[in-house]
C-alpha cells in the first residue's frame, strides 16, 4: 500500500529536519528524539511539535526557527508552525538507536 500525499510530505519534512542539529550534542534533532510530532493540515500546512534537551536552553529559539526553515524548504509545504512542548520532558531514552550508539548509550 503506497503512502498518502500527507504521509509522504511528513516523511520529506522528517528528512529535511535532519539538517538541524542540537549544537550542544552535535547531532540532528530527529534522531535525538526532539521532534515529537509532524502533522499536515489542508494538504500543505505543516505543524511541528518539538522540544529541547533542557528547558530554557539558549538555543531554543534557533532550534525552533531552524526547524521552521528546514521544513519550509520541502516542496509542497506552504506554511510551517512550530510549537514547543515539555510534556513529556525529553530524556536520552528518546534517542534513536543510531544516536544512542553514537553517544555510547546503552539501547535498553
Amino acid at each position: 500500500m503506497s503512502a498518502t500525499p500527507e504521509e509522504a510530505l511528513v516523511e520529506q519534512i522528517g528528512e529535511a529536519l535532519h539538517l538541524v542539529i542540537d549544537p550542544e550534542l552535535g547531532y540532528n534533532i530527529v534522531d535525538l528524539g526532539l521532534i515529537y510530532d509532524v502533522a499536515i493540515d489542508n494538504g500543505c500546512d505543516a505543524r511541528i511539535t518539538m522540544t529541547t534537551t533542557t528547558r530554557g536552553c539558549p538555543a531554543t529559539n534557533y532550534l525552533q526557527s531552524g526547524a521552521r526553515d528546514a521544513a519550509s524548504s520541502v516542496d509542497g509545504v506552504d506554511s510551517v508552525e512550530v510549537s514547543l512542548s515539555y510534556d513529556p520532558p525529553w530524556t536520552p531514552k528518546m534517542m534513536s538507536p543510531a544516536a544512542k550508539a553514537h553517544f555510547g548509550i546503552d539501547d535498553d
Binding site: 529536519l17 539538517l19 538541524v20 542539529i21 549544537p23 550542544e24 550534542l25 552535535g26 539558549p58 538555543a59 529559539n61 534557533y62 532550534l63 526557527s65 531552524g66 526547524a67 521552521r68 526553515d69 528546514a70 524548504s73
Partner: peptide
C-alpha cells in the same frame, strides 16, 4: 557555546553547520 549560537544559530536549518565541539 555562545560563539556557536551567535554565528551558526541564525542559519540553523538553512545550511549544514558545525557542532559546538568543532
Amino acid at each position: 557555546f555562545v560563539t556557536w549560537l551567535e554565528c551558526y544559530g541564525p542559519v540553523l536549518g538553512k545550511t549544514p553547520t558545525p557542532r559546538v565541539q568543532d
